[in-house]
Nucleic acid binder design. Structure first.
Lengths: 334, 334
DNA sequence: AAGCAGTATTTTATCGATAATATGACGGCA
DNA sequence: TGCCGTCATATTATCGATAAAATACTGCTT
């Protein structure tokens, strides 16, 4: 490996001069600079980033830590990347599988040292566990879990989104709407917050809230969603609308409804949450709550930049607004 | 920051002993070990990975460098992650936007030093550019571009896959099949290799190859694919089948066909490539060439592990076999 | 009691870069 | 001539860990 010392020897100068040429820290005379650059070229020298990190205490890298790489998180990551790169830093993704242990490990002192800042999409950790994390590293949390006040946090208006979607289906004639993938958890969770919005829409319309219409699913995959919905159909429970807790779940619902011969939106209206790219393309077009990934990405990265720039003010807790994007899977759609 | 020296002082031993306790390199007496562990607990010490990297010359981290985080690459990354973790290493993802500059930068000496090994999904670099990369770092290339012999490489049987899909549609009655998203490039590229397979199926069946049926698209998004296909419909060019170069492109085709009132598979059969998760769920089920992500991931990671373990034999060039998964978007489907 | 094998622990040097400080060379001015 | 300021470059110390070599400590044998 070619080191800075090798370049220095080749150019007949000290290592410090090489460093100064490359980093433009202290001024270097033109003839010397030229000799150094020539030596760099000749030897093909490139800085050892690890050594720089150790000495300089900065890595110029931000990590976005996600439960999994695909679907929602992949899309958000693609929005975040250019924002980080615009400030001259690198973005890397790490995966936790959504397990509390992995998330905790990602927040360990050791791993945090590798980055100048961290965006963590919280899926497994609860408020108490997060409260045990002690660090002054810039961190912004994303996601629908409850988090300690001292962490900056960006979440979606889950309840409002679910309410909007459900109310929209009620307005267009649905009376028995399933909450597919929702739960009755008491802790703040995506699945319970969205259930509350569904309930509120029902109540606002004077409809009964029937616990049988909340259909939990084993894993958050389209396959599990399809199976769960097919079970409902088989059970004979009558329904004329489905609020799917995410678009991925809605995709499973689309498949189940098609298999069951139920027409969307004529027999059953369907709405999802997240407005993933695919939502516009899956026929007949999926009505979905738009989480404004771009805006969420900008907000989160903005909060992180501020912390990395030395801001020490209080943490902010942002609730990103949502809006309903109406498509063909609900009546009143295009 | 708590350093190893702090722990050593607290426990009344040398830093080396702390290191030996934590890494189990040299044996340490039980009472000493206990004191050290107590000090570690008391101070909340964790190793500085950057310092370890510098000294030990190993990062225990593998990078998977992809054009973008979503869809195909996100799914593959989720398959790769557990395989890397099984060997006690971390996986991180980096993004290149598919640009040659970014891909070259990812292969620079400086960035390669950060990882014990690199999996690179080549999208932008051609053979000559890759040939300029000089490094002994374990690297495995993925993707459909041509690469120099000295790099290990895993690609798909693109031509065969496209042929299978096209032949299947011909067998079930299609005679005018579009190659949506394909190109006439002469360099080996995913889009041209798959076009060749499409051509071969047509020729094998004694059908004409008409250049108008190769429909390139501006960007590899469903939106661009939908627009391109709507243009074809508007042009009046008759067709009764669509081979979409990827499932993402097929998704755009699904939308365009639905908008145009063309029924799948009655009026038009449709097949894609990649067999993404969503392919089973988009009604009526997308017939797709299965690229066996899991197998590709295993092969690539296997080659990388071998290199990281010190293997110096010749590079391997693996062509991963494919198979056709028939679903409702083609006749003969379920 | 001396010698020795074998284990436990410490010392020293190093990974490669850079912040802080020191030295050197040169011109200007009284 | 002598002193000072300025710019260019070099030296030194350090980031935090660990490999390799050196030393200290055991108990056991004869």
């Amino acid at each position: 490996m070619v080191t800075m010392a090798d370049v220095a020897r080749e150019a007949g100068v000290s290592a410090m001069t090489v460093s100064n040429v490359l980093n433009e820290r202290l001024p270097v005379g033109e003839p010397t600079r030229a000799r150094v650059m020539a030596a760099v070229e000749a030897l093909g020298y490139e800085v050892n980033l690890t050594a720089r990190h150790l000495r300089a205490g900065r890595t110029d890298t931000v990590a976005f830590i996600v439960p999994s790489f695909h679907d929602y998180f992949g899309e958000v990551a693609d929005k975040i990347a250019p924002l980080i790169e615009a400030e001259g830093r690198h973005l890397v993704l790490e995966r936790t599988s959504g397990s509390p242990e992995h998330e905790m490990a990602a927040l360990s002192v050791a791993r945090l040292q590798l980055y100048d800042g961290v965006l963590l999409s919280v899926a497994g950790l609860d408020r108490d566990q997060l409260d045990r994390v002690r660090t002054s590293k810039p961190i912004v949390l994303l996601g629908e879990r409850d988090v300690p006040d001292r962490f900056s946090h960006v979440r979606l208006a889950n309840e409002e989104g679910a309410r909007l979607a459900t109310a929209h289906m009620i307005e267009h004639g649905s009376r028995r709407i399933l909450a597919l993938g929702c739960t009755f958890d008491t802790a703040h969770m995506m699945t319970s917050d969205r259930r509350i919005g569904w309930e509120r829409a029902l109540r606002d319309a004077g409809l009964d809230v029937d616990a049988r219409y909340v259909v939990p699913i084993s894993t958050y995959t389209p396959a599990a969603a399809r199976d769960a919905l097919l079970d409902v159909v088989a059970s004979g429970l009558p329904f004329d609308g489905v609020f799917a807790v995410t678009d991925v779940i809605a995709l499973g619902a689309v498949a189940a409804l098609a298999e069951s011969g139920l027409r969307v939106p004529v027999d059953v209206q369907l709405a999802g949450f997240d407005n993933l790219d695919m939502a516009s393309f899956v026929p007949p077009g999926l009505t979905s709550v738009d989480a404004n990934h771009e805006g969420v990405a900008e907000t989160a990265v903005g909060l992180l930049h501020r912390q990395m720039a030395g801001w020490t003010g209080p943490a902010e807790h942002v609730v990103a607004p949502v809006r309903l994007v109406v498509r063909g899977s609900t009546r009143g759609g295009a």
